[in-house]
Amino acid sequence: MPEKELNVLKPKDFASDQDVRWCPGCGDYAILNQVRRICAKIGQTRENSVFISGIGCSSRFPYYMETYGMHSIHGRAPAFASGVKLANPGLDVWQVTGDGDGLSIGGNHLLHVLRRNFNIKIMLFNNRIYGLTKGQYSPTSEEGKKTKSSPMGAIDMPLSPLSVALAAEASFVARAVDVDKDLGEVLERAAKHEGSAFVEIYQDCNVFNHHAFKYATDKDSKEDHILRLEHGKPMIFGKDRDKGIWLDGNRKPRVVELGKGIQADDLLFHDEHDESLSFLLSRMTYPEFPEPMGVFYQIEDECYENLLQKQVDDAIEAKGKPDLQALFNSGDIFEVK
C-alpha cells in the first residue's frame, strides 16, 4: 500500500476539467468548494475516491470532481455505492443526493445503506424543492407549499431527514448550512467517521425556492435561529449567547433565557452518543426552536463490507483455500468406465 501523500494535493487538484453548470448563485457551489477543500485537507487521494450520485441538480456533483465518479439513476446511488464497497472496501466512497433523490424515489435505499453501516459518506443537499424538473414540491417542502404541482398548497406532511436517518440506525448524523463556516468541519468529521455518515446540508435553490433557509443564513439573525451543537457543552445559542435549551418536567425541550434564574449548568448538554437526545434534536424546527447544526449523533460500529470480508476470510480459514475441483466433486459421485 502506497502511503497517503498528506497535504500534497490542493483543493484545485480535485477539480475536474468540466465546466460547472449549476445556476449562478446556487448553494451547490459552496458545498463543492468545501468538499474539494476537505478531500485535500484530510489527504484523500484522487484515484481512491469515488463520488456516486443519483439524479437531480446535486447529482451533477461527480462530474466536477477529479476522482472516479458515477452519475447513476434516480434514487439508487446508495445501492451503487454499496456495490463499490462490496468489491473494494478500501475506496473512499461519497454519495451525493438531494431531498427528492434521497428521500422520495430513493427513500428505501437510504434506509438500508444506513442500517448496514457501509463506510460511505452521504451528503443530502436539502433545498426543499425539485429543482431539475423546475419547481415541484419535495418530501421536505413545508405543508401548504405552493408550487407548479401544488397550486393550492402541498397537503403532504414533510419528513425530517435526520429523524429518518436516526431511525434507520445511522452511525453518524449531522447537519450544516451550505454557506455556513461550520460546513467544512462537519464534512471533515463525516469523512473521518468509520461507517455510514449522513449529513443533511441546507442548500439554497436560488431559482425555485430562494431564501428557504434565510432564517439560518441571514447574517444579522441567524444565530438566533440555529443552535450550534458541541459535544459535552450546554446548548446555548443566540447572537448574544443569552438563550438556551432546557428540558421541562415533561421531558419537553423549551427555549429559555439565561440569567433569569437559569444558569448554563441547568441547560441540556449535548451528548453525541445519546440516541434519544439526538432524536429529540432532530424534531426541533424553526420557528418554534433554533434548528440544531453540527454533529447530532455518532457511534462506533462495524462496517458491513468489513464484516462480509471477515466471513470470507473465516470461511477460507475453516474450510481451506478455494478448490474448484473439490466443489465440482461435492455430492455423490459415480464413475462410468
Binding site: 445501492a79 463499490v84 434506509l111
Partner: peptide, 27 residues
C-alpha cells in the same frame, strides 16, 4: 464464502441490480 464468493441480499430487486453494477465499476 470459502471460494471468495460474496453474496449481498439487497433490499429490493433494483438495489440488487445497482449493487452488481457498483461491483463491476469497482473492478
Amino acid at each position: 464464502r470459502n471460494f471468495g464468493v460474496k453474496t449481498f441480499q439487497a433490499e429490493d430487486e433494483i438495489a440488487a441490480m445497482c449493487a452488481a453494477i457498483g461491483v463491476s465499476f469497482a473492478g
